Simulated scan of single mutants.
Amino acid sequence: MAIIQQSTTEDIQSTAGIVIDKLQSWWVAFVENLPNLGVALLVLILSYFLSRLVFKTTLKLVVGRVRQRSVAKLIAKVIAVIVVLLGLFLALSVLNLGQSISGLLTGAGISGVVIGLALQGTLSNTISGIVLSFRKNIRLGNWVETTGFSGEVMDIALNYLVLKEADNNIVIIPNKTILENPIKNFSLTTRMRVMIECGVGYESDLEQVEQITKNVIADSFDQIESTENVEFYYTEFGGSSINFLCRFWIDAENSLEQLKAKSKGIKKIRQAFAKEGINIPFPIRTLQFDDQTLHVSKAEKTEEA
């Protein structure tokens, strides 16, 4: 029994000695590397404050080029994080922790691959949002048409674009979809063409119809200087009317103004035609039954009987 207790005491003393020796070696290493620790800590502090300065400076520079503030903040934060990481690597190199730096780089690479695969769709939309924010052919307030939707650009976020349609509905479209599909921007030009199609009766004086239409359109819109700026073409002999196309340009930047101009033109043309007695016919189908047709029908019924 005494032998067992003595052996246990020796094991405890041996273990305690190992721990004490290890703590002493750590203390010696800490004291020896104390200047390096101070330099590393100073590097980290300086890198932190430098990153904040870089963030503010970058944000001011980017905001002037990117109207979307969320994207500007993202770019500024990425640059600030890069500054902090550089400070961290420099601090580790001061402490002669080259293996730690290699481990961090390896871990960052593996983590980046895993995160990239897991968030492939999100990252794609985010990158697309950054690209859209730098494109000059689409801005906030523009009236655009894309992927079957048309409206005013209200917001270009990191992952999506917000459109406000003419009926006041809000449409949220992923940025990736915007880049992969054609987009029509009505706000890039200050003039839009309005086209009005109509038809008049076959008994109408076609020269009079043309002249009245041109005069009405020229008088209804201030931006049209004369009737020479109004295009008028007869297009076809329809089933109940002779159809024509009237085209003219107006100062507009969105399709809503184009619709309002078209509506105004239709009302003015209708009023002018009614005043002059010009008929705008609607489709008519005439069914004619002669005596022969009725005779054949009666004969068929008799045979069936």
Rank of each mutant, 00 (worst) to 15 (best):
R285D: 12
G199H: 01
Y160F: 09
S102D: 13
G109K: 04
T106M: 14
Y48F: 10
I138H: 08
T8E: 14
N36E: 02
N229R: 06
D21A: 14
S255D: 02
S241I: 00
L105V: 15
S128Y: 00
L74C: 03
L119C: 10
S220R: 07
E304D: 08
G277I: 02
R135C: 07
M154V: 12
G238I: 01
M195V: 10
V63H: 10
I115G: 03
T58L: 15
D291C: 10
A40Y: 06
V144I: 12
E210T: 04
D167Y: 00
E225K: 13
R193F: 02
I172W: 03
L53T: 09
L179V: 00
V113C: 04
L119H: 12
T15S: 13
G199Q: 02
D251P: 00
L206S: 05
R65C: 01
I156Q: 04
K260E: 13
S263V: 05
L46R: 06
A299C: 05
E225D: 13
S204N: 09
I269N: 05
N254E: 09
W249H: 05
F273Y: 15
G98M: 12
G103H: 02
G265C: 12
L188T: 09
I217M: 01
S263I: 06
S47G: 08
V43Q: 07
W27P: 00
I280P: 05
Q271R: 03
V94I: 10
V230R: 12
F221D: 07
I196W: 00
L97W: 08
